[in-house]
Write a protein that binds this DNA or RNA. Structure first.
Lengths: 143, 143
DNA sequence: TATTGTTATACTCTATAACTATA
DNA sequence: TATAGTTATAGAGTATAACAATA
């Protein structure tokens, strides 16, 4: 039933599969995909808006709205930067930390299941290639 | 500089990388991601709204809007189904065919570049595992 | 002047609920 | 009654352009 699938199609399918699982894990935690990405990034520590734009690949105005909504939900807070009065630093709240922790466990488990049926050696090789290919992708997620 | 990355993080990064390339290829062709997915699906032939919902994972009302906008842009058209007067079949227009063809070439090239630096044997193995893992993902894209 | 962020505005995407028409 | 689609409505996400404050 499964027609031959080229490398590009394989990548696209995997990508949409992961996005689906990502979305489901998010929904279980009350997060949209964009919010989950934001929180994952902030898990590394408080970050300025400009840096967040770069990491997330968003325009500044888009990020303003995203942070607004996340702040409104009590997931993040804006802090003023004593060194630069123009700048804003965004940090996880206690609740944001808990939420992203839960999300992290959810998505890790789902993705783990995706690879669970592979022989260990194959999984290892797959993971190594994955690491190579994504070497310079933004670190939107860290185990 | 590259910290160790677990299997889940690798999948997430690859996924966001592919999404970014997908979005860029789409923008170059005047397509949003959702529209590109719709058109890719329709490349297999005219399809009923209900089937499209299943393949794309959308609610019916969401699909109505998506098709509305694509139709408004002249990319798809609604056809009536002579066998069931409730049903609607969605088909690519000539322009839609051309556009999705261009998109297909764009995305294939970008994704090919992503894997271009891998040794042939590794790329082969990677692709084989990819095919296994995505065996029951919806065929939103076919080479 | 350049940078940091926000506001105003518009469009796309998506969902839920209520509705119409046909099977 | 069940199925195929649409409409109404609302919220989230995103971008461009214009703006304010600070460096």
């Amino acid at each position: 039933m499964q027609e031959a699938v080229g490398p590009a199609a394989g990548l696209v399918r995997l990508s949409f599969l992961v996005q689906t699982l990502y979305g489901e894990a998010g929904r279980d935690c009350g997060l949209t995909t964009a919010q989950a990405q934001l929180l994952c990034t902030l898990a590394a520590g408080p970050t300025g808006m400009a840096d967040l734009c770069t990491t997330l690949g968003l325009e500044r105005s888009s990020l303003t709205g995203l942070v607004d909504r996340a702040e409104h939900r009590g997931l993040v807070e804006r802090q003023s930067d004593p060194a630069d009065r123009r700048a804003v630093r965004v940090a996880l709240t206690r609740d944001g930390e808990k939420t992203i922790g839960r999300f992290h466990r959810e998505i890790t488990e789902r993705l783990g299941r995706l690879l669970a049926d592979l022989p260990a050696a194959e999984r290892e090789r797959f993971h190594r290639t994955l690491t190579k290919v994504t070497a310079d992708a933004p670190a939107v997620f860290v185990d």
